[in-house]
Design a protein around this nucleic acid. Structure first.
Lengths: 244, 244
DNA sequence: CGTTAGTTTGATGGTCCTCAAGCACTGTGG
DNA sequence: CCACAGTGCTTGAGGACCATCAAACTAACG
């Protein structure tokens, strides 16, 4: 019936609460204003004031902070079904930038529309706040990853997190997923040099755990990878063991 | 007139918006249920469901996550005027633990009281959300600190952030501040070994930048420290240059 | 006055960075 | 059809940074 019933955001939220037909409709309404952005050109700059959020419909985005010395730290990646700039709408100006990794498609959601939707259907508000809270838990886990894990574990843990997130929107399985990231992206996210990321990937490949090639991540021995990374998906708050 | 007019939280929020007498009163009401906790014993455990938040009145707390291998990563420190578990009340269960660093005094704020206060005075809600948003910006900056700075810069940047935060509640100046943290705390927060933290502190002392001794941080040459750390306090969203 | 928590220093080695160079693939223009 | 430039991947060599292990020292406290 609705094409948007299969929208990534709907899929994701449905994994958390069973939305009624009306709630799904309201969610569909939010997807009206389609916009596209080209890869590589920032959508939002550090310090910019935002009066709208976006729901990512297709493609990948990363949010990052630039350092005075020119290096950058990627805070998080957004995949289909994720919000962009939700916090800067609900709260205040964003202090980091958003860059599309590939050409993307996103629905622009004006602040007012979002708040209207929330007041119409409180359960939807709860679901969206759940998603925001989950995003924050991911940032915290990322912080732990940088502070307390070595390079092998960081890469392994990161790939497993991505797989879990993608599984939730039907874009990944325990066998693998399509991944448009370069090794530079991994390096900037994981606090490593791209040279070292390359070596880690080689090692994981040689040990028959996972391959990262031609935009495709394939898990060969996911249990070994989970063990190596000490990966516990509890923080993702996904009820079903999506990769099991 | 009110003792609580000088409460750290009130001071902090007043730096963001000028609260009316009525709003300050409502804020005071939230400070009713005083509770104390002893140093070292967790207030909240990972995964615990919280039906109340706390406003820290005196003392320091840290929030952390334990790893399966026994190491821990400190996510953030809370100082007087900070909320504890605000998100787990507004959203869902907390996925990290809170440990008082010294004996502390905190006001318990039941979920209902908080929401009532918000509906009575929307400006107060805005102010509290500002504080929550600022906390999140600090976590993001912490992530950048771990991902893209070396040990010297991490320590320097961390001490400068603390000084700025403390200045906002009248507990620090550009000359220094009282600091109950051990070098182990710094190590667990900054992703370093305590041995190396010690060496970094020695270096910063020998270079006449800052001393960390007997629970007291003293800035000798704060400009050199700021330069070393590339410290830009914009993310703290404090209008006045509090350390200038 | 022994115990404990925290600090300090030395020695050694592993992890990961930096510099450097080469390779593979893709798209572009002559 | 072929240079070519651009982007991303790959590998080697050398060294900086920081962890780990070990031990001594200080201060506080019962």
């Amino acid at each position: 019936m609705h094409a948007a019933e299969n929208s990534p955001l709907t899929r994701k939220l449905m994994a958390f609460v069973a939305l009624s037909a009306k709630e799904v409709d309201v969610l569909d309404q939010l997807h009206q204003r389609r916009r596209s952005f080209v890869a590589g050109r920032d959508m939002v700059h550090q310090g910019q004031v935002a009066q709208a959020a976006y729901i990512l419909a297709a493609g990948w985005v990363c949010s990052y902070k630039l350092q005075p010395d020119g290096t950058r730290q990627i805070i998080d990646f957004q995949i289909p079904g994720d919000f962009l700039g939700l916090r800067s709408v609900l709260l205040r100006t964003s202090d980091h930038s958003f860059e599309p990794i590939v050409d993307i498609l996103a629905a622009e959601v004006p602040k007012r529309d979002l708040l209207d939707a929330f007041s119409q259907t409180p359960r939807l508000a709860t679901a969206v706040l759940w998603a925001a809270s989950r995003d924050e838990a991911m940032v915290v886990e990322h912080l732990v990853r940088l502070g307390r894990r070595d390079a092998d574990q960081r890469v392994a843990h990161f790939l497993l997190e991505l797989a879990s997130r993608l599984a939730l929107v039907g874009m990944g399985t325990k066998a693998g997923f399509a991944c448009p990231l370069t090794q530079y992206h991994l390096a900037d996210a994981l606090g490593l040099s791209s040279v070292h990321v390359n070596r880690v990937l080689r090692k994981l490949r040689q040990e028959n755990m996972v391959t990262f090639k031609n935009g495709q991540v394939r898990f060969i021995n996911i249990d070994a990878l989970i063990k190596l990374a000490d990966f516990d998906p509890a923080y993702l708050d996904q009820t079903g063991p999506l990769l099991a």
